[in-house]
């Protein structure tokens, strides 16, 4: 064997040249902010007394903070009700469009998707005017029909928000399901037809199993979105006076602590606590979802 074959391999930077630009941006945009939030969460910067290292004290406070868990419970309830409703509606819409029995499917697809294209703040303001029980549409309906619709009442406001979010995201989820349905090979339908399967049988035996993966993905997105709930309640806050409070959702709580209360450190702690919880729940859902898929 020629001796040069034993030469130790030269350090090769070519791989880094390819991944370097990505890694730099990734570190700057993802890792650095996370690390900085973690760093912040270990300190307390007080108006009186200045900045001090406090170890895990902020986490201790967060774990026993009734306002944080009040907000958390609220988004959890929101999640458990709103996400299933939205995903079932999206699935029905996707199946309807895919069924080839609908006239002008392109139009339906576009119209259902359209709310997603409206900027969230604009959409919520629009709904705010619809919900207004003094001079909004709700007031007109109440006057016309003698009803007592009050979408901003404390017992209704979560449902009103759920309605807005569902309206916004049904189209988006429908598109995910529809594209999953489109990947089903035609042969499967042919085989089903030869076996004598009809209508709902095809849906049950072919279509639903095929979109299971997409449903898991959409569920994970929706869980993350629910825990992040911020725009919709924050825009409605001035309209739903006193009903949407400063800790309505964990994100709103963190926002108020940081921007009105100058508690950047505690705000970072809450962001991290919520991030960990969201990641754990999303991971569990993914594990369960994929396990069922294997069966």
């Amino acid at each position: 064997m020629p001796p040069h074959a034993f030469r130790p391999p030269r350090r090769d930077w070519r791989g880094w040249q390819f991944t370097g630009p990505f890694a730099a941006v990734f570190v700057f945009v993802f890792i650095a902010p996370l690390a900085y939030a973690l760093w912040l969460s270990l300190f307390q910067n007080r108006l009186v007394g200045g900045n001090a290292f406090v170890g895990l004290e902020n986490y201790q406070t967060a774990l026993t903070d009734p306002q944080l868990w009040d907000g958390f419970l609220r988004v959890l309830v929101f999640l458990l009700v709103q996400v299933p409703v939205m995903l079932v509606l999206a699935l029905i819409a996707a199946l309807a469009i895919d069924s080839a029995r609908l006239y002008a499917t392109g139009l339906f697809r576009l119209v259902i998707f359209l709310p997603y294209a409206v900027p969230a703040v604009v959409a919520v303001l629009m709904w705010g005017f619809i919900y207004g029980d003094h001079f909004g549409l709700a007031a007109d309906v109440n006057e016309l029909l003698g009803t007592d619709l009050r979408p901003f009442a404390p017992s209704w406001v979560l449902a009103s928000l759920g309605n807005i979010v569902t309206w916004e995201y049904v189209g988006y989820n429908m598109l995910i399901f529809y594209s999953a349905l489109k990947t089903i090979p035609y042969e499967l339908y042919e085989a089903a037809e030869i076996d004598g399967a009809r209508g709902l049988q095809v849906v049950k035996a072919i279509k639903l199993p095929a979109v299971r993966g997409a449903v898991v993905i959409a569920t994970i997105f929706s869980i993350i979105g629910s825990f992040q709930l911020f725009n919709e309640p924050n825009v409605l806050k001035p309209l739903a006076n006193n009903v949407i409070n400063s800790y309505f959702t964990p994100n709103m709580y963190a926002y108020n602590l940081s921007f009105a209360g100058q508690q950047y450190n505690y705000s970072a702690t809450i962001a991290i606590v919520m991030g960990v919880i969201t990641a754990v729940i999303a991971y569990v859902v993914q594990l369960r979802g994929t396990r069922r898929e294997d069966r």
Binding site: F227, Q228, N251, Y255, S258, S267
Partner: peptide, 14 residues
């Protein structure tokens, strides 16, 4: 969440 973190950081990195 991600928006939150980014906001916090924008405010404080400098």
């Amino acid at each position: 969440m991600s928006t939150m973190k980014r906001r916090t950081v924008i405010g404080t990195v400098p």
